[in-house]
C-alpha cells in the first residue's frame, strides 16, 4: 500500500472543517447535555448536585413520559411508511417528460418552503368546523349530492394524531420527492430498455429495476425521515399542545415542557438521551438491514 499515507492525509484535510464545526457546535453541546443529565440541574438554582442515574430512573416511573414515547412511536410508524410511499409515487409520476410536469413539481414543493409554524396555522384554519375548508367541502358535497354529513367536525380535536401525521407528510413531500427524482434520474435508461426487450411489464420494471437501483436513495430517505419523525415538535406545539388528553404529547414536546415550564434542565437532558438512544437503536437497525440486503444482492450477483 504505497498510496496509503497520502490518501490518509487528504481524507483528514477534507473532513477537517466539518469535523471541527460539528465538534464545537454539536458534539460539545452533546457532552454538556450528558453532564446535565446526571445532575439535578435547575436552570436558576445554584445548588446542582450530582444524582447519577436518578433522572433516568424517575423517567421510567413517569407514566406521562411512557405515554409520550408510545405516542412518538405510533406517530413514526404511521408517518414514515406513508410519507415515503406517497413521495415515491409522486416522484415516479413526475419522472416523465410530460408537458406541464414542472408546474406540478413546483406545486408539490410549496408546503416545504413554508415554515412549520405557518403550515400548522394553515392546518388549524383549514380543519375548523363550519368555516374550515374541509367542512366547507363536505357541506358543498352535501348540497350537491343531497347527503347530510356533519359539517361541524373539528378534525383536529377528533383525529389529533392523524392530523399531525398528515401535516408531517404534506410538509415533507417536496424534499423527499426531489431526492427520489434525483435517484430515479440516475438509473440508466438502457436498463429499462433491456427489461422491456425481456418483456417485463410496467410493474415488473418498477419492482426489479427501479426499486433495487433506488436502494441507496430510499435508505437515505428512510433514515432521515425516521429521525425527523421521532423528533416531531413544532406542529404539536402550535396545533395541539400535546392534547387532547395527551393523545399527541410526543417526547420532544414533553422535553420542551420539562425544560421551559419547569426549568428542570437535568431531567430534560435525561429525556433527550433516552430519545437519542431510541433513535440510535432504530437507525442502527436500519443500517444493519441495509447492509444485509446489499450483501445478499452482492452474493446473488
Amino acid at each position: 500500500m504505497k498510496t496509503a499515507r497520502p490518501m490518509s492525509v487528504a481524507g483528514y484535510l477534507f473532513v477537517g472543517p466539518a469535523m471541527l464545526y460539528l465538534g464545537v457546535f454539536t458534539l460539545l453541546p452533546m457532552v454538556v447535555a450528558a453532564y446535565l443529565s446526571v445532575h439535578r440541574w435547575h436552570l436558576l438554582k445554584p445548588d446542582r448536585p450530582f444524582v447519577g442515574w436518578d433522572n433516568y430512573r424517575r423517567l421510567l416511573e413517569d407514566p406521562f413520559f411512557v405515554n409520550a414515547i408510545r405516542n412518538t412511536v405510533v406517530f413514526t410508524a404511521l408517518s414514515v411508511p406513508l410519507g415515503i410511499a406517497i413521495a415515491l409515487a409522486a416522484a415516479v409520476l413526475l419522472n416523465r417528460g410530460l408537458p406541464g410536469i414542472r408546474v406540478f413539481r413546483t406545486i408539490f414543493y410549496v408546503p416545504s418552503v413554508c415554515s412549520q409554524v405557518a403550515l400548522s396555522m394553515i392546518w388549524i384554519w383549514v380543519t375548523l368546523p363550519h368555516v374550515g375548508f374541509v367542512n366547507w367541502l363536505v357541506g358543498s358535497a352535501n348540497a350537491l349530492l343531497g347527503t347530510s354529513f356533519a359539517t361541524d367536525v373539528n378534525y383536529l380535536q377528533r383525529f389529533p394524531m392523524i392530523s399531525v401525521v398528515l401535516l408531517f407528510i404534506w410538509n415533507g413531500l417536496g424534499p423527499r420527492m426531489v431526492i427520489f427524482l434525483a435517484g430515479l434520474q440516475n438509473i440508466p435508461e438502457t436498463l429499462y430498455e433491456a427489461a422491456r426487450v425481456d418483456g417485463a411489464s410496467g410493474w415488473q420494471r418498477f419492482r426489479y429495476v427501479t426499486l433495487p437501483l433506488l436502494m441507496p436513495t430510499t435508505f437515505f430517505i428512510v433514515v432521515t425521515t425516521t429521525i425527523a419523525a421521532l423528533q416531531i415538535f413544532t406542529p404539536i406545539y402550535v396545533m395541539t399542545q400535546g392534547g387532547p388528553n395527551r393523545a399527541t404529547d410526543v417526547v420532544v414536546f414533553h422535553i420542551y415542557k420539562e425544560a421551559w415550564h419547569k426549568f428542570h434542565i437535568g431531567q430534560a437532558s435525561a429525556m433527550s438521551y433516552v430519545l437519542f438512544s431510541i433513535i440510535l437503536t432504530i437507525s442502527l437497525l436500519q443500517f444493519w438491514a441495509m447492509k444485509r440486503r446489499s450483501d445478499m444482492i452482492a452474493e446473488s450477483a
Binding site: 384554519w125 375548523l128 368546523p129 363550519h130 368555516v131 374550515g132 361541524d152 367536525v153 373539528n154 380535536q157
Partner: peptide, 9 residues
C-alpha cells in the same frame, strides 16, 4: 364546547 368555539374562528 371547544370545537364549537374554535368553529367560529
Amino acid at each position: 364546547t371547544h370545537s364549537e368555539a374554535a368553529a367560529a374562528g
